[in-house]
Design a binder for these strands. Structure first.
Length: 899
RNA sequence: GGGCGGUUAGCUCAGUUGGUUUAGAGCAUCUCGUUUACACCGAGAGGGCCGGGGGUUCGAGUCCCUCACUGCCCACCA
């Protein structure tokens, strides 16, 4: 055989991927077949392939490929997300490197730069998905900010406004001073950090007494407009109604009493800074306190602060501490641990800030979305994820969604302002028309209106994705009627609230039709029927793999090293639905970075090699025109039975999204049963095999390729074509998912007996250091079972071949010079030349006998119990009876052996 | 503070309405093997009072209570 002994994935992968593209196999157009649709979670245009992607997109690809093999119209819609903050930050950084500030550019100029950036880098990740084998319909590739999608986003905005669910208001919001935009609550990540707690004294006006306040933010003292104590706190009762003098600024502010104050914390006295703390804002509102905002958008102090003007809040804190020390007002500094909110994108400490924003009322949307899953219109996998979903969406927890962002990269909010009036419309012209009508002034011009400067939160457009990728809001709903609702959404549970919940909200909201221009959902209003939550990919220390930790291996290097099939196997073999996967790339103790290695992926690569060599073996055989032997026939019968059994297991696993179970069933069947057992049985010594057996082998192997194709598309396609000459279009990717046939369970159990026998003989050889290939004689004690077993000559042939036996016969009693052992319930005797340590053998058998007797007592106790026999299901009782009989049989055999 | 999970072999995990030969897999470990598909392989072995305690039941890894440890979500944190 001249072909190489090892499989090389490189050219194979490239070649077949191109072949699939050339034949448009991933293309989907509506027809009369059942659709199987997944809207690909659009990766950020700033994204590069990481482990999380590999898990999620491999899972999707496996499901898509299976659906295609099952004859469904498989449609996987790809695309990218404009990722407003992330992308804008990248572009700003790039400009800065060129010495350009964002503020130097007009909005149009900036967007031009941003689109240029997107055109250059935005497609990289989709190309990487192709290397992974992802079979999406690339002709459908969409981008959340392309004109048609933006148009739909604006339409959605207008509809939500018209239905009264969108409103604009001044609220305490989360401000990212680095990106200089507001964030939604979900975009703020809290973690515990060490901070200082400063005790600062405030003089009670007109007295020499002081009230000491505990604060972590001394730099906001200049914005203090009150001091609060608990109404029942007797320490402070005498000060009720008085005022204190704020240090540094020497402003007199009222002492107020409020239940919010916890007398136990700090000194029990709280300085109130309504502009810079959400709770203080509430307290301030309740007591009519002034709001003094001393911060600029970038987090530096403004003129209202009087002190430290122009300093960043962090620097100002240091300055304030220094100054307060000088004045003697800082009494104490304590360390404590508290949670600090940071921007998910920029990691900058979030500043509470009173700003004017657009909010989406969640009341109705959340209730609908909650009911959809609760009532089973949408199924979560794993089902337990519903708990998390519910806790977020229940009315007492859900809060209105701030949808405006102070950015340029995104859909500009379609609201125009004129003389205190707001006009929301899809286009400026419509807004103008509204304004003319409202004001009764037909001379009003576009230039008289001012459009809102802000853009929409990225997730607002993402929420529309399952509808907008089919242009569902644009009038022609042909595609939508066919593909909507999509079959499945596959994504990580970490964006359940960001995205999944909101897609569900929008899905129901815009398919209701009651607003006039919503589309009519033919097959259900939900955006998808199932959600398959994948877990997080974590490192060996269970930390989430992140760029900053450097604990993630390089996905591209893994693909290079193990091949896409190997990596896919590695990702999926540990991916039960919803469970986090612990990826086994070792962390280098020196560098603390992940090595680009993985035993799981290597297992996948070795599996490829096994398949490659199994195929090589088959290719080396010469087919001859002779009748198959009985042994070949029985082996092939068994193989086909095991194949059917495996198909059943794989189908069940797929239905439950237990992809790891599916892939492992195939792995064990192909490696353990097909390669290690079946091929060894039928493998000819002279290289010649009967045509019939060959055909059956190839047919079975071919089905294995189809089954495995969803997980390992490249090597299976390669082998598919090596198995036989194929006409054009006869490709594994579009073959038929095999059907399980009824199989003979008895045959399977006879083979189990065979395997036990073979293993038993090998074990005897091992334990006595006998060469594996010296032929031995084996006898079975005559019994009904053993007689039946040996009556099939093929059985003897196979057993002899695998265990290297001279002969396999029945015996009435233990022959001389033989070693006795049990094969399931049967006594077997192996003739050995050497002398046998009778005492040691007896000891072993007696131990086993004792174990079996104990076991039997348990069974008989159960069977002797009337309540068991009466109460347990019939089959359970029958099983116990069989167990009893088998155990008795074994005990009988052992006792006979022991004499 | 409110809620949800987890705890099964050295590691990562299965164990589906309680009953499938007194617990399974993959990996790792140990022993042996230069067998012409594959040493990226083959053969064999060892390894678990199913976190502790209590209860329900004829029967519990599986249900209930309790304790311990652990992970996560939400809220709050002067």
């Amino acid at each position: 055989m001249s072909s190489p002994k090892t499989y090389s994935s490189k050219d194979v992968e490239q070649r077949w991927y191109q072949h699939w593209l050339d034949h448009d196999y991933f293309r989907s157009v509506p027809d009369d077949r059942e659709p199987y649709t997944i809207c690909m979670p659009p990766p950020n245009v700033t994204g590069v392939l990481h482990m999380g992607h590999m898990l999620q997109y491999t899972a999707q690809d496996a499901l898509m490929r299976k659906a295609r093999l099952e004859g469904k119209n498989a449609c996987w819609v790809p695309g990218t997300d404009h990722a407003s903050i992330a992308t804008e930050a990248k572009v700003v950084k790039k400009l800065r490197a060129k010495g350009i500030k964002k503020s130097d550019l007009t909005r149009e100029e900036f967007l031009q730069e941003a689109f240029a950036w997107k055109d250059e880098y935005g497609g990289i990740i989709l190309e990487q998905f192709k290397l992974l084998g992802a079979g999406a319909d690339w002709s459908r590739t969409r981008f959340t900010m392309e004109p048609k999608l933006s148009a739909q986003v604006l339409k959605a905005f207008v509809k939500l406004y018209e239905s009264g669910q969108l409103y604009r208001g001044k609220r305490m919001t989360n401000w990212d001073p680095e990106a200089q935009t507001v964030l939604s609550n979900e975009e703020v990540v809290y973690s515990d950090e060490n901070k200082n707690l400063y005790h600062v004294r405030y003089q009670v006006e007109g007295t020499g007494e002081y009230i000491v306040v505990a604060t972590s933010r001394p730099e906001t003292i200049m914005a203090d407009t009150g001091l609060a104590v608990h109404p029942d706190d007797e320490r402070y009762t005498k000060y009720h109604g008085k005022k204190v003098i704020v240090p540094l600024v020497n402003r007199a502010v009222p002492i107020v009493t409020d239940d919010y104050v916890d007398p136990e914390f700090g000194t029990g006295a709280l300085k109130i800074t309504p502009a810079h703390d959400p709770n203080d804002y509430e307290v301030g509102q309740r007591h009519g306190l002034e709001v003094i905002d001393i911060l600029n958008a970038d987090g530096s102090l403004n003129g209202l602060a009087e002190f430290f003007v122009g300093e960043d809040r962090e620097d100002a804190r240091i300055s304030a501490v220094k100054k307060l020390k000088e004045t003697g007002d800082l009494l104490e500094t304590k360390q404590y641990r508290t949670s600090v909110g940071r921007s998910e994108r920029t990691d900058s400490v979030v500043e509470p800030r009173l700003t004017l924003q657009w909010f989406l009322n969640m009341e109705k949307l959340a209730a609908t979305a909650l009911a959809a899953v609760k009532e089973g219109e949408i199924d979560f996998h794993p089902a337990g994820m519903f708990n998390m979903y519910q806790s977020w969406l229940r009315p007492e927890n859900v809060r209105d969604w701030c949808v405006s962002r102070q950015l340029w990269w995104g859909q500009q909010i379609p609201a125009w302002y004129h003389e205190g009036e707001t006009y929301v419309a899809e286009t400026a012209e419509e807004a103008l028309a509204q304004a003319r009508e409202k004001t009764g002034n037909p001379a009003l011009q576009l230039s008289d209106l001012k459009q809102d400067e802000d853009v929409l939160d990225t997730w607002f457009s993402s929420a529309l994705w399952p509808i907008s990728v089919f242009d569902g809001m644009l009038g022609d709903t042909t595609e939508l009627e066919y593909y909507y609702p999509s079959t499945l959404m596959v994504t990580g549970w970490d964006i359940m609230f960001f995205w999944v919940a909101r897609m569900i909200m929008f899905g129901y909201e815009f398919s209701e039709g009651e607003l006039g221009s919503g589309f009519v959902a033919k097959h259900g209003k939900m955006p998808f029927k199932d959600v398959f939550f994948t877990g997080m990919v974590r490192d060996e220390k269970r930390r989430k793999m992140t760029k900053s930790l450097g604990n993630s291996p390089d996905a591209m290097v893994l693909l290079e090293r193990y091949g896409a099939d190997g990596v896919r196997f590695g990702m999926l073999s540990s991916a039960a639905a919803g469970n986090d996967i612990i990826f086994d790339a070792p962390i280098d103790p020196e560098t603390k970075k992940a090595r680009n290695e993985s035993k799981l992926c290597d297992q996948g690569r070795r599996f490829c090699n096994k398949l490659f060599n199994a195929n090589r073996l088959l290719q080396g055989w010469t087919q001859v025109d002779r009748d198959p032997t009985e042994a070949e026939q029985i082996a092939a019968d068994w193989l086909e039975a095991r194949l059917s059994q495996t198909i059943e297991q794989v189908n069940v696993a797929f239905d439950d999204y237990r992809l790891s179970d599916a892939v492992m069933s195939l792995y064990k069947f192909i490696w353990g049963d097909f390669c290690s057992l079946y091929l060894e049985i039928v493998k000819p010594t002279d290289g010649e095999i009967s045509q019939a057996t060959y055909d059956r082998t190839i047919a079975a192997f071919e089905q294995m390729m189809t089954l495995l194709h969803s997980f390992m598309p490249f090597i299976t396609e390669e082998i598919w074509h090596q198995l036989k000459d194929r006409s054009a279009g006869d490709d594994c990717v579009v073959s038929s998912w095999p059907k399980a046939k009824a199989y003979d369970a008895d045959l399977l159990s006879r083979f189990e007996m065979l395997q036990t026998l073979v293993t038993g003989v090998r074990e005897v050889r091992k334990s006595r250091n006998l060469p594996e290939r010296d032929a031995l004689d084996l006898y079975f004690r005559r019994s009904a079972t053993s007689e039946a077993l040996l009556s099939a000559p093929a059985f003897c042939t196979i057993a002899s071949k695998l265990a290297y036996l001279n002969q396999l016969e029945l015996a009435e009693a233990q022959p001389d010079n033989s070693l006795a052992f049990l094969v399931k319930t049967e006594a077997a005797y192996l003739i050995l030349d050497e002398t046998i340590d009778v005492a040691a053998e007896r000891e072993k058998m007696e131990a086993e006998l004792k174990r079996l007797k104990g076991f039997l007592i348990g069974i008989e106790k159960k069977l002797g119990n009337e309540r068991f026999v009466a109460g347990a299901p019939e089959e359970v009782v029958a099983r116990e009876r069989k167990k009893q009989a088998d155990t008795k049989e074994k005990i009988g055999q052992l006792e006979m052996m022991l004499g």
